[in-house]
């Protein structure tokens, strides 16, 4: 039975124009019921409608509320520090390799917590441009508002991260990979194997047996929005295993790919989030050197 996330179903975009499409509430409810997820169906039934369609403004407010809560998870799991731990060595290797300019793009940034936290700390250095990209204009608008309010040196763009005017030096994402079906992951990683790109770092939930239980406890304790509680557990159930991610990442054939501290190398609780990393072979030695002893945590395809 397919595991569905409500947040994937309540908004829809035209793949060609990226224009927002109306979402018929009854269709979403039927899909969730067909997936034997009555609870999720009830959550969607409570969303206000505009005729037969879900009300766009109500959906946007709901998603902003859920993402605002979700940021707490990122804060408590130290996601900005975790990204910095990988990004600082990658960018040091890129600088050494003469890569310029240094542009970091967050794919599916939501409210842009990681980008804004990295911008706030300044840990990546003043020569790094930070950009968050998401298809959802409501989330991008909120991310930009928050960045302006705190005068953070970063910006947010609504659209396709792979269709920006300039490619990224480094692509990152946080909790995005499980939204792709396993057979679509290869396309996602291949899209990042472009000339100007030196590396990618994508964090997602480690697919351990305990992950759904841990997600349930955590979301029950920390989240108020029923949508957030539901999707948090669904995310853990949908998470891709280490081998699936490594095989998909390897399709970016111009990169060396690794998992950092994958499940079998770490305590299942501590490995709640772990990254898949791709880096140009010319930069790998320097990246390892910058990581120091932590480089032992890098595990490539078997």
């Amino acid at each position: 039975m397919a595991v569905l996330e409500i947040s994937d179903l309540v908004v829809s975009w035209d793949p060609a124009t990226r224009q927002r499409l109306p979402v018929v509430k009854a269709d979403v409810v039927a899909r969730l019921r067909a997936a034997a997820d009555a609870r999720a169906a009830r959550i969607v039934e409570r969303i206000p409608t505009d005729g037969p369609n879900l009300d766009d403004a109500a959906v946007d407010r709901l998603l902003v509320r859920a993402h605002t809560e979700l940021q707490r998870l990122g804060e408590e799991l130290h996601m900005a520090q975790r990204f910095a731990e990988m990004l600082v060595p990658v960018l040091a290797a890129a600088r050494d390799g003469g890569v310029h300019p240094l542009r970091v793009v967050d794919i599916g940034c939501g409210l842009g917590y990681v980008v804004r936290a990295l911008a706030s700390s300044g840990v990546l250095g003043p020569d790094v441009e930070l950009i968050g990209v998401d298809f959802n204009p409501a989330l991008v608008g909120e991310a930009q508002r928050l960045a302006v309010e705190e005068r953070l040196p970063c910006r947010f763009v609504c659209g396709d991260a792979f269709a920006l005017d300039e490619d990224a030096t480094l692509y990152l994402s946080n909790g995005v990979l499980h939204h792709f079906p396993a057979d679509a992951l290869g396309t996602f990683f291949r899209a990042q194997d472009r000339p100007a790109t030196a590396a990618f770092v994508h964090y997602d939930i480690a697919a351990t047996r305990l992950a759904p239980l841990g997600a349930w406890i955590y979301h029950r304790a920390r989240m108020r929005e029923p949508l957030g509680r539901h999707d948090g557990v669904a995310s853990a159930r949908r998470a891709h295993g280490d081998d699936v991610l490594l095989a998909a990442a390897a399709q970016a054939s111009g990169m060396e790919t690794f998992l950092f501290e994958p499940t079998r190398h770490a305590n299942p609780f501590c490995a709640a989030m772990r990254p898949v990393i791709g880096i140009r072979p010319a930069l790998t030695a320097r990246f390892r050197a910058e990581l120091g002893r932590r480089a032992k945590g890098l595990v490539g395809p078997r």
Partner: peptide, 15 residues
């Protein structure tokens, strides 16, 4: 440190 404090968060403070 970061990882150990995550352990405390997930295993203790949340529950």
């Amino acid at each position: 440190p970061m990882r150990e404090s995550t352990f405390v968060m997930v295993l203790a403070l949340g529950p």
